[in-house]
Design a protein around this nucleic acid. Structure first.
Length: 878
RNA sequence: GCGGACGUGGCGGAAUGGUAGACGCAAGGGACUUAAAAUCCCUUGGGAGUAAUCCCGUCCGGGUUCGAGUCCCGGCGUCCGCACCA
């Protein structure tokens, strides 16, 4: 064999991959029909933001989804596997500002570039269903649903406190405020009251919480995070009487929320939020209080500010009466640690059993009285100084509650205050509170879905009539000034009122982009529908998504919003179910080591040469030879420059190698370390499979199945079917790293069988090898589809492996005629025993007791006990 | 502070309470080659021994069990989520 022909025998991914992609496309095998008698299977990966280029995280995510799609297709299902673009958002506007390009052009250019990249990965996607959320044909239906939700009472317009960036002139999300400053402008963020459109997600708090337990194929971690986010807590609303002589406007009552009514006799003060109406009216008459409230507002909202903030209060002079003792007066403070938007924005303070309250009284000298005494502590000597006690115990210093458990005391207080009426209302009322807030969707941005309402001075807020949808974003906008270009677009903004025909203005806020991604999965079921967001018949047939795959970073917002949105769509007749995602899988990140140059800047992996063995690895810059420090392994990011360009990998190794490595090294839920060695290992395996399959193809096998198989042939058949059983089990559970290991084992076994045959194999072995080769190729097809097609052709098939059924398992090949059991003596392995398949426990025990190692250990004595675990192990207790 | 997850060779990781380290990477040795690359074969948790074999070993300390990486209790460490939520 010449060197040239040897070279030609290497698998050439660069040539083969585009060829098969074209062939699949021409055959239309990934286009899914809605009418199909087979069972449906909907697999979806979180759609990307079109930033311009795909990154390794996308490669990992979409590879996993593609494995599931191809496997489910082979299992005989009608598979829906679509792709689209989460195309609205700030980066497009930033590009417009920085590079003087239009957000629309920028976005569609990016989509085109990224689509090409995704296609080069060989993903089995139905591109005919492609959608982009920035397209009027998509957001038209979103506007329609906004109007439906409005009619159904699921949308409200609220006057809300928001983070306002005075330079960028927009509302910022809490995550965009860093140390009290806007993340882009660096300007001091102001608290501002603005009208905001909100979705009433809190109406569904209880339902969203309760239904979490029905999500069987969701990770526990995500379910727990959503539970905590919804944050249910049971407590008591209590109306405290105020001394009207002390209140600014003659107010007689203050309503508070507490989860600890049992500690009512430990109360030392009341506190209200700086934003509480009572604080506002009191401040109007008291300039010093106004100064204090202003100072509270200046305080940052960032985490660091909150962590270091001191508890501060201002005594308003208002006095409240204890609900169980009118003569017991409590001072009412305005305090900086009381949030207006939780509970009623007011509390009673029990310093002995709440750390914040204790810090507060210690500063203002109000003292504390313990009312819960820990078990085994003498109540007389129980004193609280710097640390509040929030554990279990018995009630003390609490009059009629003394001696009760905390739970009993809570119940007693609730019962008494519910029974006590003031006016026609009870003094106390049990209430469930949630941490979950309504979802504010107003954004003062251009590149988003316009909110379809019109403001009329006469008629107020008027919905845009459905026939006038979509409200299309105008193209002729400029970004030379800060703020929302829609606000200064005269012909778009100024319109006639649909109700009275008078002069009116369009709403210029656009929707949060999380709205766009809260229903795209339903749109994929019928993306051609011009008349409605969905055809409920098709949506109900395809939904819920059987397997959704994406990053853990969406554990709360996107996934919770989608759960809410699906319920809202159900209420408005667009879909017939509550839960959008039956199965959820959150994949880990792609990480890479970092390289730090002498000057403190980072070098990219492509710029660095690595030498030396593990433990003594050295890195130098290829260009200059300058040594660089090998740093920690971190998430691939632009700032650390430790990114690998998927295009480079596909160019030099091919898509299949990238796909295989992504699946092979780590369990899919954990981070995977991208390494050059790992990719090379994957690349070697591709060539190895190609060689093994080539050698199998060279074997001359009979067409007819032999009546008998020799031991060598049986070994081959067993290896193939064991791999088939194992891969089938693991692929269904998304344990791709184990699938990879099973395929390696199978390939190794076939390689060994070929290597140990010097002459042409006997007909039965040849038949077994061909059969095993067919199985092997179909097993790795979901992971490496191009190589699999090429191998399938080499094995003489005229069909595409992508359209083949999953191999049929012959279960009898998994059963051995004899089994070898480990033999333990006192729990330590000392020998093996081989018995027949059907051997009973008595027979096994006799065989074990005849072993030399056992007799030596027994030394003539009788064993105390012999434990035989069928199919597993034998333990002899001496 | 509250909640959760995790801790196994040089590395990524396998292991329904039942032979710890599957499979891969790295490393070492060998074959082929004038040589290198590529490929193929062998070895590889630590220790003792020519060998059969034996001892130790899954973060640390206890416990349950015939048997614990796995279950329980107490530490230590790492990572993640939430957080002035009354």
């Amino acid at each position: 064999m010449t060197a040239e022909s040897q070279k030609n025998e290497r698998y050439n991914a660069r040539e083969a991959e585009p060829r098969w992609q074209k062939a699949w496309d021409a055959a239309g095998i990934y286009a899914t029909k809605n009418e199909d008698p087979r069972p449906k299977y909907y697999v979806l990966e979180m759609f990307p933001y079109p930033s311009g280029r795909i990154h390794m995280g996308h490669v990992r995510n979409y590879t996993m989804g593609d494995v599931v799609a191809r496997y489910q297709r082979a299992m005989g299902n009608n598979v829906l596997h679509p792709m689209g673009w989460d195309a609205f958002g700030m980066p497009a506007e930033n590009a417009a500002i920085e590079r003087k390009v239009h957000p629309k052009g920028w976005t569609y250019d990016n989509i085109a570039a990224m689509k090409k990249q995704l296609q080069s990965m060989g993903l089995s996607l139905d591109w005919a269903r492609e959608i982009a959320t920035c397209d009027p044909s998509y957001y038209k239906h979103q506007q329609r649903m906004f109007l439906d939700f409005l009619k159904a009472g699921l949308v409200a317009r609220e006057y809300r406190k928001v983070n306002w960036d005075p330079v960028d002139q927009t509302v910022l999300a809490n995550e965009q405020v860093i140390d009290g400053r806007g993340w882009r402008s660096g300007a001091l963020v102001e608290q501002r009251d603005l009208y905001q459109w909100v979705f009433k997600i809190s109406d569904y708090a209880e339902e969203l919480l309760a239904a979490i337990d029905t999500l069987e194929r969701w990770p526990d971690k995500v379910k727990l995070m959503q539970k905590n986010w919804i944050g249910r807590s049971e407590g008591l609303l209590i109306r405290f009487m105020l001394d009207a002589r002390t209140t600014p406007g003659g107010e007689t009552e203050l309503e508070i929320f507490t989860t600890r009514p049992d500690t009512l006799f430990g109360a030392k003060f009341m506190a209200i939020s700086p934003d509480h109406p009572l604080a506002t009216t009191a401040a109007a008459k008291n300039p010093k209080l106004k100064d204090f409230i202003d100072e509270c507002h200046r305080m940052g909202t960032s985490q660091a500010d909150i962590d270091t903030a001191e508890k501060m209060g201002f005594d308003t002079g208002i006095r409240a009466a204890h609900p169980f003792d009118p003569s017991w007066q409590l001072p009412v403070y305005v305090a900086n640690f009381i949030l207006m938007d939780y509970g009623t924005g007011a509390i009673f303070g029990c310093p002995a059993h709440d750390q914040r309250d204790l810090d507060f009284v210690n500063k203002y000298g109000l003292g504390n009285t313990p009312v819960v005494c820990p078990p085994d502590v003498d109540p007389k000597s129980f004193v609280i100084t710097d640390t509040a006690y929030d554990g279990d115990g018995k009630m003390i210093n609490s009059r009629f509650l003394d001696g009760m458990t905390i739970d009993a005391a809570k119940e007693e207080v609730a019962k008494r205050l519910e029974a006590e009426k003031r006016g026609n209302r009870a003094v106390g009322q049990r209430q469930v509170n949630y941490r979950l807030r309504d979802w504010g969707i107003s954004r003062q941005r251009y590149w988003g879905c316009p909110i379809p309402v019109i403001h009329c001075d006469k008629c107020g807020v008027v919905p845009v009539p459905v026939k006038d949808l979509p409200v299309v974003l105008p193209d002729d906008v400029t970004f030379d000034k800060p703020g929302n270009p829609l606000d200064r677009h005269p012909t778009w903004k100024n319109v006639k009122c649909p109700s009275c025909g008078g002069d009116a203005r369009r709403e210029t806020d656009t929707m949060d982009t999380f709205v766009d991604s809260s229903w795209y999965f339903a749109r994929f079921t019928d993306p051609w529908n011009e008349n409605a967001p969905t055809d409920p018949k098709m949506a109900n047939a395809w939904m819920p998504v059987d397997q959704y795959i994406g990053g853990i970073e969406h554990a709360i917002l996107h996934l919770l919003y989608s759960r809410f949105f699906t319920r809202a769509m159900k209420k408005t007749g667009h879909i017939g179910m509550d839960e959008p995602f039956a199965g959820l899988f959150t994949q880990g990140m792609v990480v890479h080591e970092t390289y730090k140059k002498k000057d403190g800047t980072w070098a990219m992996p492509a710029e660095v040469k690595i030498e030396g063995a593990e433990g003594a690895r050295k890195a130098t810059l290829i260009a200059t030879g300058e040594p660089v420090e090998i740093g920690s392994i971190e998430k691939m990011s632009k700032s650390k420059r430790n990114t690998i360009d998927p295009d480079d990998i596909m160019e030099s190794y091919g898509a299949d190698v990238a796909r295989w490595f992504m699946l092979s090294d780590s369990p899919p839920e954990r981070d995977v370390i991208w390494s050059e060695e790992g990719v090379q290992g994957a690349s070697r395996f591709v060539q190895r499979l190609w060689r093994i399959v080539g050698e199998i193809a060279d074997v001359k096998a009979p067409d007819a199945r032999p009546a008998q198989f020799s031991d060598a042939a049986l070994t081959v058949r067993k290896a193939a079917h064991r791999a088939l059983a194992n891969v089938s089990e693991d692929i269904g559970r998304l344990r791709f790293n184990r699938c990879v290991a099973h395929i390696y084992e199978c390939a190794n076994a076939l390689n060994e069988a070929i290597a140990s045959t010097d002459t042409a194999p006997a007909p039965d072995l040849a038949f077994a090898l061909r059969e095993a080769g067919d199985i092997l190729v179909r097993l790795f097809h979901p992971m490496m589809p191009h190589l699999a097609e090429e191998c399938w052709a080499v094995l003489g098939h005229r069909t595409m492996v992508a359209t083949q059924d999953w191999p049929k398992l012959e279960p009898e090949l998994l059963v051995e005629n004899t089994i070898t059991l480990p033999v333990q003596i006192n729990g330590k392995k000392r020998a093996d025993v081989t018995v027949g398949r059907g051997a009973g426990n008595a027979e096994i025990e006799a065989a074990v007791l005849a072993l030399d190692a056992v007799n030596k250990a027994l030394d003539g004595k009788r064993p105390k006990k012999v434990i035989v675990v069928p199919q597993r192990i034998v333990n002899v207790v001496v």
